[in-house]
Design a protein around this nucleic acid. Sequence first.
DNA 1: AGGGCCATGAAACATTTGTTGCACGATTTA
DNA 2: TAAATCGTGCAACAAATGTTTCATGGCCCT
Lengths: 290, 290
Amino acid sequence: MALSAKSSPLSELRIALPSLPLRLQEVGRFVAANDYDATTRSMRDLAAEAGADPAAFTRLAKAIGYSGWDELRAALTEARRPSQISPFSVRAKNRRHGPNSDVALVTDKLEAEAAGLPRISAHAIADAARALHDAKRIWITGYRSCRSVAELLNYELRLFRPEQVQIVGASGPDDLDLGAFRPGEAVIVIGFTPYTNASVRVAQAAYRAGATLIAIADSVAAPMAEGADHVLLFEAASSPGFFPSLTGALAIAQSLAAVTFSLGGAAAKKRLEDTEARLAAASTYVSEKG
Amino acid sequence: MALSAKSSPLSELRIALPSLPLRLQEVGRFVAANDYDATTRSMRDLAAEAGADPAAFTRLAKAIGYSGWDELRAALTEARRPSQISPFSVRAKNRRHGPNSDVALVTDKLEAEAAGLPRISAHAIADAARALHDAKRIWITGYRSCRSVAELLNYELRLFRPEQVQIVGASGPDDLDLGAFRPGEAVIVIGFTPYTNASVRVAQAAYRAGATLIAIADSVAAPMAEGADHVLLFEAASSPGFFPSLTGALAIAQSLAAVTFSLGGAAAKKRLEDTEARLAAASTYVSEKG
DNA sequence: AGGGCCATGAAACATTTGTTGCACGATTTA
DNA sequence: TAAATCGTGCAACAAATGTTTCATGGCCCT
């Protein structure tokens, strides 16, 4: 079984990389970034594109334990070979118990989540996005594990609508924000069983203020979905394991942001580009290499 | 680029196959059945395995309109090249318009994400979880949109290991935490293209300190994956839309937490129950209705 | 049957491949 | 400061690559 401690050539490369000479690091990075070309094109060809000496590739291979470039490339080729075994056959054996029950747990979890995603209603999301598009201001709420989803939504929406989006409670006690809800604004509340009192309070405040309420929840019976103009459902409990799954909620949040952006048209695009340009100017990102 | 928009070289081959000489048909079938080997191994090598003459490969290539085997192989190689990630601006364009384009966008996004999830390596996650289980302390890092994933991971892990988990930079400047990394501790860094400098700094600090480095990234070539003991890959660019998808990263984070919890056994379970009991006592949750 | 045609395998060809020895320069050590 | 070590590019090397040529053998047509 291929389960042994032997790892892929790319991991070997990655682990050895920091302890390598400068030039070898360069070509090592190049190989890692272009491993498909590494398996198909010639060493000299790669060297020309990487702007390095052909010999460096041979030396790199030897430095990480191969007899030469040929052997390293062969390893990369095998690692890339399309798997002939179907994932189902793997699933069939070693169920539940045994040395690899952890792996089975992960596999189950991922498959369950993948199966859950398409059940999300695309129409409902598109409708909610239109509501967001029309909103003068957008408030976002999520407590406990849902806070992460709330923050991602906040982040993405602020990329192209910086002044009009904020998380409830971000700049002080929640209660202050609750009084600020106005008609024409949108309030998003994210949550699932067991529901936190705080999120329900936010939903009620939004409802009373006449703001557009968008609930992202695991059930239409969720208390924060009461009186909501839009309810977007995901399956929190669909996955095996001990914590409810947030993948569905996150997928909804991302779709919501994407559609809202698309509704924003040229203006939104301009805003996003400005933001990206500012980040680039502040050298937030690692610069691209040739 | 030899010819204009032609179909894939493999279909060209299949079409021309019946009108070819006997021997060339055999070779052609072999190429069609083993096109991965055709792109990676040498002509003579293939000939030996197919039980044919090396010259037959050159003749086959010429028979279907290529200048030689090299050119045919180049075409096969390009046809097999993994779909490259297109930059944001390119992806933003060429969207179809129409009344329901928004709905289509959501559907595309969800389907793509569902398809991407099962590609995550369950083994790698299980291994990383074991490393987390053994770690004396766990540091978590994620900037910009990845911060949301980092915070979810932090939240879930703290449910059963409250004193040993923290987000880098949560209690002051990042730099203070970077000096606190120790061998025996684990550092998780989450990120994708374009990579923030800050996340790379954290990864390097972890490496230098001898801590166990776990990278959750979109590529093995990611700078914060260099020297990492575990790399968990997700597809950020797999989904249509304008922002990279975090669903994969989130699924990894949740699986990681679930497996780590399961490794924690009875002790972890006790911890979780205590936490839940405390939250219930503080009446955080909405009480069940009859 | 004979003559032309084409398919086929083996061997020789010019290129290109991965590798290695060597010299130069930078950095470290005594 | 001198010696030693290491990293690096260049150039020459043998091996392997794809291609071509040539001789052979089978096939069809007149």
